[in-house]
Simulated assay, not measured.
Amino acid sequence: MKLGVYNAILHDRSLPEALEVIAGLGLTGIEINTGGFLPAVHVPTFDQILESDTARDDYLGLFEGTGVGIAGLNCNGNPLHPKPEIGRKHAEDIRRSIRLAERLGQHRVVTMSGLPGGEPGATVTNWIVNAWNSAALDVLDYQWGIAADFWRETDRLAADHGVKVALELHPQNIVFNTADVYRLVELTGATHVGVELDASHLFWQQMDPVAVVRELGSLVVHAAAKDVRVNPENARLYGVLDNRFRRLSPDEPRTNLGGDEWANEWPKDSAWDFVALGRGHDAAYWAEFLSALRDVDPDMMVNIEHEDVSLGRIEGLEVAAGVLLEAARMIGEDAPARV
């Protein structure tokens, strides 16, 4: 297997410095952000690479001798957003990332399926959580039509460039569980759209990531190592769909998600939290997760995503890497394969 880090947590430093951190963790891959919600910080010559072999070779030269190679590209965003300044931009980021992947010799682009508005002329997204009424199914029918058109076209582009697009099963997207994956493939006939198995979003939905891997099989083409801890004393009061988020003001540090949309502050006494590997599920569980992924693809890329706010950037990566490497050893993967 190929174990690495999704680079967003290392955007505070240069690419060579990020590679040094990852090598120091005993890992060999870096999944590089190339647009969507976050800028392509570690690909400053993006446009040049698309056109110039020299620029491409210069960029790839940055990885030589580091022990760390590129382990996929990531442009998580909302390509179906009804606001063009968000939706069109994120959709183009996906197309550009597919072309960039081919230029860099990569075969995986991670993103999200996206979420449209609920009706023609909408300006905000509409996530149907529980479609118990007929009007909600009408919204879903409309949204699936938009999603199918986009992903049918994107699948053809990915096939033309020898790339598979890996969709993160992320709530507030049209595809966020196993049934949705099958529906998208059925509607589009996709051959180059699959799943990035990020266990964290499955945990808090009460899904079993190992069972999902075994169910989806070859549709799983990439993976993320991120844990979740459910806080029972809060979950029993607020449930996992708790909406007690706080809007951050313009004078507070906040993350732009495109256009005029921003990330909100997490509830203080949350029902669940993203945590470093091992703080929600032990190494034995992650060994089972890796084993299931290896059964699908012995060369599966599995990259740590660090969003544990109780730990610093490097501290969180060190905790997660320790658990991931221990899990790998438990299934006989003594050393991560070079990317």
Rank of each mutant, 00 (worst) to 15 (best):
L248F: 06
S200V: 07
N126V: 11
L293R: 01
E85R: 03
A122W: 01
L137I: 07
A55E: 13
I86C: 05
R152T: 14
P120H: 02
A8P: 00
E186M: 08
A284G: 07
L311E: 14
V68A: 05
A328H: 03
S97P: 05
T45I: 10
R313I: 14
E168M: 08
Q206L: 12
I9K: 02
I70Y: 02
L104E: 10
T111G: 06
L184I: 08
A327R: 01
T178V: 12
R13I: 15
W132D: 12
R95A: 12
I331D: 08
Y59D: 13
V193Y: 04
D53C: 01
G105P: 08
T54K: 06
G67W: 06
E168V: 13
L202P: 05
D138G: 11
Q106Y: 09
A223Q: 12
D297F: 02
G77Q: 03
R254N: 02
K2N: 15
A190N: 05
A321H: 02
E51S: 13
V228L: 15
E186V: 04
G322E: 13
G278D: 07
G114R: 00
L202W: 06
V275Y: 04
L137T: 10
F289H: 05
T178L: 10
D227S: 08
N76P: 04
D53R: 00
G278V: 03
V193S: 08
T191Q: 15
V212D: 09
P79R: 04
L184N: 07
P82E: 14
G312D: 15
E265W: 07
F245C: 11
E153V: 06
S200R: 00
A190I: 04
L187H: 02
R246P: 05
V124Y: 05
L104P: 06
P253G: 01
E31C: 04
E20M: 12
I331V: 15
D149P: 00
W151E: 08
S52M: 07
D47G: 02
G162T: 06
E51N: 08
E233L: 15
P16A: 15
A131D: 14
P79M: 13
N133P: 01
D198F: 04
L38S: 09
A18H: 10
A284F: 07
G67D: 13
L100R: 00
A328T: 08
W132Y: 12
L237M: 11
E318R: 05
N264I: 04
T188P: 12
A276Q: 04
A284Q: 10
V109F: 03
R338N: 14
R313A: 15
G322F: 05
A321E: 04
V43D: 07
R254L: 04
R279N: 06
V275I: 08
V181K: 00
E261Q: 10
I314Y: 14
D260F: 09
N78Y: 03
L317T: 01
T178N: 01
Q143I: 05
K2S: 12
E64H: 15
P44C: 11
D308E: 12
D308N: 04
D160V: 05
L187I: 01
V212S: 07
N173M: 13
A284V: 14
H11A: 05
D208C: 14
L38F: 11
D58W: 09
V110Y: 00
W286C: 06
C75V: 12
P16H: 15
Q205E: 14
H170P: 09
I22M: 09
P116I: 10
L202I: 12
